[in-house]
C-alpha cells in the first residue's frame, strides 16, 4: 500500500485520468461535473419541495427533469467516494472546519457564483478544459477565456481583500 503513503505527481495523476477519460468518451461521453451537480441540485430540491411544485418550474420541467438515471451524477458521487477511501487508507481523513467568518463568507459567495455560472453556461471547469476544448468546440475556447479572465478578476479581488 505504498501508493497511499506518498504524494503522487499531479502530472502522472492527470495523465492517467486523461487516458481513462478517453475510454469514458467512447462509452458515454467526456468527464464532466457540472451536469451531475445540476441534476443533484434538481433531485435535492425535488426531495424538499415535492415533484408537483418542481414541475411548475420550467427549467426542471423542460431542460433537466430530475432523475437518478443520469450517469453524470455518479461521476461526482464517485469522486467523493474515491477521495474518502483514499483519505482513510492514507490516514489523511480528518474533520476540517474553516476557522474564520471571512472564510465562510468567501466560500458561500464562491459556491453561489459557481452554481450560477454552471447554470448559465451549461458547462463547468472540467468540461471546459477537459471536454469541450479537447473536442475543439468553439464554445470551449469561449469558456476557457471567460474562466481565465474570471479567475484573474477573482485573484485580484482576493489579493486586495488579503492586503486589506
Amino acid at each position: 500500500m505504498d501508493f497511499f503513503k506518498k504524494s503522487l505527481d499531479p502530472i502522472v495523476a492527470l495523465a492517467i485520468i486523461a487516458v481513462f477519460d478517453i475510454f469514458l468518451f467512447q462509452i458515454v461521453g467526456a468527464w464532466t461535473v457540472g451536469g451531475g451537480e445540476t441534476m443533484i441540485a434538481g433531485l435535492f430540491v425535488k426531495a424538499l419541495i415535492g415533484a408537483k411544485a418542481m414541475n411548475r418550474i420550467p427549467f426542471w420541467r423542460m431542460v433537466f427533469k430530475p432523475t437518478w438515471a443520469y450517469w453524470k451524477i455518479y461521476i461526482s458521487l464517485g469522486m467523493g467516494f474515491g477521495a474518502l477511501v483514499s483519505a482513510i487508507l492514507s490516514k489523511e481523513f480528518y474533520w476540517r472546519v474553516p476557522k474564520h467568518l471571512s472564510e465562510w463568507v468567501m466560500i458561500t459567495i464562491g459556491g453561489l457564483l459557481m452554481g450560477i455560472g454552471i447554470r448559465l453556461s451549461f458547462v463547468c471547469n472540467v468540461s471546459t478544459f477537459l471536454g469541450l476544448t479537447p473536442e475543439m468546440n468553439l464554445g470551449g475556447y469561449l469558456a476557457v477565456s471567460g474562466l481565465v479572465i474570471g479567475a484573474w478578476v477573482g485573484t485580484w479581488v482576493y489579493k486586495k481583500i488579503l492586503e486589506a
Binding site: M114, A151, G154
Partner: peptide, 23 residues
C-alpha cells in the same frame, strides 16, 4: 457556441477563486 459560455465561466472563475476550490 454561445455568449452564455463566456459569461457563465467568468462568474464561475471568480467563484472558484473565492471558494478556493473547483468542482
Amino acid at each position: 457556441v454561445g455568449i452564455n459560455q463566456f459569461i457563465g465561466l467568468f462568474l464561475f472563475g471568480i467563484g472558484m477563486v473565492f471558494a478556493g476550490a473547483c468542482t
